[in-house]
Design a protein around this nucleic acid. Structure first.
Lengths: 149, 149
DNA sequence: ATTGTTATTGCAAATCTCTCGCAATAAAGA
DNA sequence: TCTTTATTGCGAGAGATTTGCAATAACAAT
């Protein structure tokens, strides 16, 4: 999961502009998020970050993720998990056409690129007005590997 | 929200095939769900059903909705609500191209039909294999009415 | 109709995710 | 280095959802 410019840079600038502070905790959380390949929950991020700083508290991760989501720097997602946990996906300008497929047998989440969503977005805005800021397309079903078993 | 054949009929048949029982509670819950126009939470359904039978318990609604979801008769959805509640949408064969828009100002959810999702689904299956059973496309942003204020 | 089997319910307690209040801490501008 | 105050750690608190269990009620067999 590589972002240019980095999420850390973006977040730092946002904080500067709004009188916020880039703390070591936020830096660590953002770094940990960026190292995750999949769609981590707050707890996934916490586990990884906690290895670097065992005084970090889970509620700080929740607060930071909420702030990032409000700033539009990550997109919250739900994948019909066992425990209904919120997951996070870093946002970059092009990723509106980045969609997901979740296999109900192996529970894996597959990511794929998809120009079609951009088309639907444009059509929606033309028809109904308003302004779309982000999109979440999730397919549910059975993946190829599980289907063959 | 009208379904042909009815959700009740489908559910009854599924139960018969698996040695289950169509109880008065399940019947009431399914009827209440079908009367909802939007995307009800388990509690929304419970409130409506409870007016008919005040001995009905909320946990029975949760259990029934989980069963319906496992049977693929309803699709669980999450709309980044205040309390992250699961919502349910009856499934019918054509509704894969039925998408949602959620306004982050007024929190309303708008539904719209959308043949584009079917195209993306077909493209996905051709490229990656597997079998897609349902889809959830949600746009987030600001609706026309809120934008004009 | 009646009976027997057992799936299902009501209930309450438990679990789980996520949020909040507050005293203590630490960014970052002066 | 000092000051201000945004942020943290912590524990308690909300809310949503699940679970264990005794009591109940479907429905197949009689």
């Amino acid at each position: 999961m590589i972002l240019e410019p980095t999420l850390l840079t973006l977040a730092t600038n946002r904080l500067r502009n709004q009188g916020g502070r880039m703390t070591t905790q936020r830096r660590l959380i953002i770094e940990s998020l960026s190292e995750c390949e999949d769609h981590p929950t707050a707890e996934d991020i916490f586990k990884r970050a906690h290895q670097q700083d065992n005084s970090l508290h889970l509620s700080t991760v929740y607060r930071t993720m909420r702030w990032l989501a409000e700033e539009g720097l990550v997109s919250p997602r739900w994948f019909d998990d066992e425990h209904h946990q919120e997951r996070f996906d870093p946002v970059n300008p092009e990723n509106i056409d980045h969609s997901h497929f979740r296999c109900r047998v192996c529970n894996q989440i597959f990511e794929f690129m998809n120009p079609g969503v951009e088309t639907i977005k444009a059509a929606y805005q033309q028809q109904f007005g308003g302004h779309i800021e982000s999109a979440s397309l999730i397919f549910y079903g059975v993946c190829k590997t599980c289907e063959e078993k």
